[in-house]
Simulated assay, not measured.
Amino acid sequence: MNDRPKQSEGRLPSETGGTGAEVDAFLRKVAAIRPTAAGGGRGRLIFALDATASRQPTWDGAMQIQAEMFEQAGALGGLDVQLVFYRGFGECKASKWQSEARGLLRAMTAVTCLAGRTQIARVLRHALGETAKKKVNALIFVGDAMEEALDELGHLAGELGLRGLPCFLFHEGRDPVARDAFEQIARLSGGACCRFDPSAPQQLRDLLAAVAVYAAGGRKALADFSERRGGIVRQLTHQVR
């Protein structure tokens, strides 16, 4: 039975209350990562989501956000995205690789959240298997809890780092156990971790779009994207330079 905190138990502060500094730290980490997308090729990104019961309130928002990733990466030669999610009793599934937002949206709308324990290790093992078949440029994970052996997750994250597959983890909520685990996975894989406020979806949308653009086209593409978007993404570009 899940004993994770309820969604309603205390939202994160606004950006003026400290979130801004955390976003800056996340962007600095992204800026330090070497580009992974091959010149002229399509980027490949795994979009992994915790679909257990506590995340139902923000699932619809995630569907809107993923479409934005495709839109921003489309002009860079394209981005192939695979949806991975876990829920319920040992269920962990991956969609086909999708080259447009509509296909991924169909996959997401077929999913409803179900109570269950986290299965982050299965997500990381899946990513290892996928990048062994064909290079995956980045993994995004959005979740609010961690109920697994941290040493195993750390080992898998380290293997992803050796294969040049950085993990970008977005932590919803205040669970300190999840926070620590997500930070360690990010560090060991060569990626970054950032906490987000579900009541401020635009911030998460911009950060996810930035990672997608980065996976599709590297730092130059990210710089071009920031000129159009500004705000948080422009901070990232300044750090890259």
Rank of each mutant, 00 (worst) to 15 (best):
M1K: 07
R4E: 04
K6G: 09
K6D: 06
E9W: 07
G10H: 03
E15K: 11
E15T: 10
E15H: 11
T16S: 09
G18A: 07
T19M: 15
E22K: 15
E22P: 06
V23Y: 14
V23D: 12
D24P: 04
A25N: 15
K29F: 01
I33T: 06
A38G: 03
R42A: 07
G43F: 02
G43R: 02
G43S: 03
R44F: 03
I46G: 02
L49S: 02
D50M: 01
T52I: 05
A53P: 02
P57Q: 07
P57I: 04
P57C: 07
A62D: 05
M69T: 05
M69F: 04
E71D: 12
Q72M: 06
Q72C: 06
G74S: 14
G78C: 11
L79C: 06
L83K: 10
V84Q: 08
G90R: 12
G90H: 10
G90F: 09
G90K: 13
G90C: 09
K93R: 15
A94D: 10
Q98S: 15
E100L: 12
A101S: 11
R102T: 14
G103S: 14
L104F: 10
V111L: 13
L114T: 12
G116F: 11
G116D: 13
A121E: 12
R122I: 08
L128D: 08
T131S: 15
K134C: 14
K135C: 12
L139F: 07
I140V: 14
V142W: 03
V142T: 03
V142D: 02
A145F: 02
A149W: 03
L153S: 10
G154F: 04
H155T: 07
H155R: 11
L156N: 06
A157V: 07
A157I: 08
L160V: 08
G161K: 13
G161H: 11
R163H: 15
P166V: 11
C167A: 14
C167K: 09
F170S: 09
R174N: 15
A178R: 13
D180N: 14
A181I: 11
A181D: 06
F182G: 07
E183W: 02
Q184Y: 04
I185N: 01
A186M: 04
R187L: 10
L188W: 03
G190K: 05
G190P: 06
G191W: 05
A192G: 01
C193I: 00
C193W: 01
R195G: 01
R195T: 01
F196Y: 06
D197S: 04
P198Y: 00
P198S: 02
A200L: 00
A200P: 00
P201C: 05
P201R: 03
L204C: 03
L204T: 01
A210W: 00
A212L: 00
G217L: 01
G218Q: 03
G218E: 02
G218Y: 02
K220I: 02
A221Y: 02
L222N: 00
F225Y: 14
S226A: 08
S226I: 00
S226Y: 00
S226F: 00
R229D: 05
G230N: 02
G230H: 04
Q235L: 08
Q235M: 10
T237D: 09
H238Y: 06
H238R: 13
